[in-house]
């Protein structure tokens, strides 16, 4: 009961943090806060550490393959130097500044 309330308030705080970060234009900060919110839900609400250990294996596998999809899937777009119909060719990774 208490734990759930704690998670709930932390989520609301993080949400407020996201809004503040938006006003200051801190995009990376928003992403970091969103990841924290996801973690709170997974640990606090879905109780992954009380679940059978298989659940953790499955969750990690899903996360790993999600990473593969996002990284290998964006590899082409972020390294392409030709074949654009409009706009500037992009040749940098999202986390690098132009």
């Amino acid at each position: 009961m208490g734990r759930i309330f704690l998670c709930w308030s932390m989520l609301l705080l993080l949400l407020a943090g996201e809004i503040v970060a938006t006003q200051s234009g801190l995009d990376r900060m928003i992403c970091a806060l969103a990841v924290l919110m996801v973690l709170i839900i997974v640990i606090g609400f879905m109780k992954i550490f009380q679940a059978p250990s298989l659940a953790i294996i499955f969750a990690v596998a899903g996360l790993f393959w999600l990473g593969v999809l996002l990284m290998l899937g964006s590899l082409d777009s972020f390294t392409r130097t030709s074949f654009f119909t409009s706009g500037l060719p992009v040749s940098h990774w999202p986390w690098q500044s132009v």
Partner: peptide, 10 residues
Amino acid sequence: IAGMWLFLAS
């Protein structure tokens, strides 16, 4: 429960 987690991974 484990099966549900696998489905959620999907």
